[in-house]
Design a protein around this nucleic acid. Structure first.
Lengths: 245, 245
DNA sequence: CGACTACAATAACTTATGTTAGCATGATAC
DNA sequence: GTATCATGCTAACATAAGTTATTGTAGTCG
């Protein structure tokens, strides 16, 4: 089952027809990108909505003097902005971390969804609202949390999101980000990211080595990061959206 | 003309029927709040979508130890999250800065919009996408910009947004935020906000006194804040959405 | 009218984080 | 097998921003 369906089913129950529709969309217009390349660039006209099938990517923004900020991560099953094609140009870039395959979703696909697939439409709204909530939480993270709280929080978020898509086991996940990536995402320098990771290691909160992350005690990591999962809205909505009524 | 219509018309051309519909919605279920009070609280079940008619408000999040971050500002004409009612609980609070009047928009109102008012629906999507872009820009702001860049950027953003809603003249606007508010929004301490404002004053970039902000040289303030308005997507979309076709 | 309060300004001192630089390690490539 | 490169690690030092405290100022209230 695809990561997207796996994720959405945490929120709404999809019918067989819903799943078929999503699988069909995910099989058409597939493209693959090498690690560290751009899928879309700031200033371009947005054409399609991208669905991440495999691999990690990120949204980033860059200042003229070169300072770069990763503003969010895309994991398998994530969808870039719904309806982005109504805007004239991209205000950020999308780049890969690992090698990535995506499916391009057309305007017509979304027209079909809103015409005949109300559960998918609701699930997509949920996705949109959760992404907005994540972006707010990042604002909080950068504005108020200390370096180690910030790092712990980010690791918790990524772990929770991977688990939701079926990409993490109980105490760890594959983790392709470099310390430079973490620096650009947390607004810290590379050196301080290193110090911060050492600190989390010393507290036995993380084991991070060779692109694998192990979290020996998630509860303690969560409190170290003042992490409250409410903003991920993981709870399924009430009965009225079930397919079986 | 209402601030909402004024703002949306920058992006799509609305018909007389569209405007009537919006004015009708803005006249029903109006509530007024005193300055420094909460309109909605984290943890509550979201019921309605709020449209700000008058006054300034903000979204904020708070940690257990009291640290507070303003994650966005609401100005007249702004709409809080579309479709928020599909989520089980609020992940943030909404509080007033000044006294504020709002109109509560019901689920049924949005059903009517998507059934029979395609231009409004597009305009609401534009609003949603711009809000997401603003939140990303705040992430950039907190992660990469220095204190004075950050402050200059925030002032530019608020000025542009007010102007869009018809609430600023060519070189200034009313400005009810205290230095404590600015601190919570920029992630700086109150003392450092004061220092930073002094610095901007010394460079003749701002005149800020008695709840009035004057920008003697917007271009210089924009470069001081590395401000690029592209993320506000102020340009009107192509012909195909005009009402007069 | 004086008392109180919210907000702004400034000073002195502390600290978290940034900067620059150099070295270690492991993977890939020829 | 060694050259190269990306990544991680560490140290010494610099600085932007935080903290605490005091004072000034203007508005509001009884």
């Amino acid at each position: 089952m695809s990561h997207l369906i796996r994720k959405l089913e945490n929120f709404v129950r999809l019918s067989a027809a819903d799943r078929l529709m999503l699988n069909r969309a995910a099989a058409q217009r597939v493209r693959t990108f090498a690690p560290r390349t751009d899928i879309a660039r700031e200033g371009e006209k947005p054409k399609d909505v991208h669905l991440i099938l495999n691999g990690w990517a990120c949204r980033y923004k860059q200042l003229e003097d070169g300072r770069r900020q990763i503003v969010s991560f895309f994991l398998p099953g994530d969808i870039c902005d719904l309806n982005i094609f109504i805007l004239r140009e991209m205000d950020h870039s999308i780049g890969t971390i690992t090698s990535v395959s995506i499916a391009d979703l057309s305007r017509e696909f979304f027209d079909e969804i809103s015409a005949g697939y109300p559960r998918i439409a609701t699930a997509f709204w949920w996705e949109t609202l959760v992404n907005a909530a994540i972006q707010r939480e990042w604002t909080m993270n950068l504005g108020q949390r200390t370096a180690s709280e910030r790092m712990a929080h980010l690791l918790c978020e990524l772990f929770f999101r991977l688990r939701l898509a079926g990409l993490a086991d109980d105490n760890g996940c594959s983790f392709p980000l470099t310390q430079a990536d973490l620096a650009e995402a947390t607004g810290l320098s590379k050196v301080h990211v290193n110090r911060t990771l050492q600190e989390l290691r010393a507290g036995d909160l993380i084991v991070l080595k060779g692109k694998m992350l192990v979290l020996p005690d998630l509860d303690r990591l969560m409190s170290a990061g003042l992490f409250n999962a409410n903003y991920l809205h993981l709870d399924r909505e009430g009965r009225q959206l079930d397919a079986n009524e």
